[in-house]
Design a protein around this nucleic acid. Sequence first.
DNA 1: TGAAATTGTTAGGTTAGGCTAACTTTTGAA
DNA 2: TTCAAAAGTTAGCCTAACCTAACAATTTCA
Lengths: 209, 209
Amino acid sequence: MLDLSSSLQDYLEAILELSEVNSTVRVTDLAKKLNIAKASVSQSISKLVDLNLVQQESYGPIELTSTGREQALKVRRRHRMLRKFLIEILGVKPEIAEKDACKMEHSISPETMDKLVDFLAASEQLPQEEPKMTTQLSQLKKGQTGTVTKIEATGTLRRRISELGVNVGTKITVLGVAPMGDPMEFSVQDYRLSLRKDEASLIRVEVDQ
Amino acid sequence: MLDLSSSLQDYLEAILELSEVNSTVRVTDLAKKLNIAKASVSQSISKLVDLNLVQQESYGPIELTSTGREQALKVRRRHRMLRKFLIEILGVKPEIAEKDACKMEHSISPETMDKLVDFLAASEQLPQEEPKMTTQLSQLKKGQTGTVTKIEATGTLRRRISELGVNVGTKITVLGVAPMGDPMEFSVQDYRLSLRKDEASLIRVEVDQ
DNA sequence: TGAAATTGTTAGGTTAGGCTAACTTTTGAA
DNA sequence: TTCAAAAGTTAGCCTAACCTAACAATTTCA
């Protein structure tokens, strides 16, 4: 694992986020998202290109390399875990949790992160309530919101889903379905997310209301 | 509350720590503790002097002003709380907890810190075991270790004791007693601490072993 | 299709927080 | 009491990450 500065990690994470919403990621998008001057973004991107984490031809769009994507996913995973912890365990307000997670993600060691994940897992097991009626996420209609009760995917897909911020307890809303019924577009914790229908069918949710 | 950079906060905290162990704090001590070149320390101290947080005549020892001391105590309180949280709640190893707390203390918002303190307080109340035999901390002999069960001090003194890192559950060891029986010298969480005998008598402990 | 608007880059500057080397002041031991 | 070692300061430099201003490339659309 490379030793990236916090700032560069933030760039990677932002590129990842944007690439899931927009078809191309451009300097201007990043500048707006991170609230940094275009010129500064441009310079930082050059650094990331030198590090082989990002590809960009002059004046062209920005794309993560596979190493870059890997790094970005790790960063985001930490970010989301931390936020989840702050919100669900400590009861910090979401806006503040978001900001703090953003800053803390850079100072927390892998060991502590692991313990934090353990703690989250343990606390999720505790409240054993009566079984609820659940459906596949893919069954929800546009506009409906559900709370994830179980992730039936395994292996890489399970990990990926988790990295995308979808975990037991997460609220997820259907934003829309593509013309052919696939993929589906969701909103999770303020992020947009696309999943293929067969992927969504491996996530069980309890429909809200 | 001033808006100090993390680095300057670290200096303040280190000065406070050193001032409790040494009679005077010098540039060299700080340089060694923080692992930073003397020249850099010297410069940073000038900044702190400009900010009225530290007093120093040229070539003389370093002393916190009252504002500086206040700031330093706040920083240390956050540091210790975080470390305590990492160790006691998450079960992170002390060495790692120490390092992480050091870095995280600068990125955590007051709101989150409050929640964290609440959480610690709540988790301390849960395990209600049978009452134990306790004594006043002032009754311990040199070399004995006790676990704090109650702090009977109130108001400012109570706050001060807590800021010094002494809280319910804290292990505290008697390092020695001054010739006249006062003050007493303790070791708490790797720090040295002096308390007057009458202050120590307001802390109840359960003797270890 | 070509000028205006948008997007991206370059040049040059700032600040914080480090560093080394060279200097000055203080201290303490012969 | 004097002078070498230790302690502290100053000068000058570096890097990361930001900035603005000016310039270059690319789109867009009239």
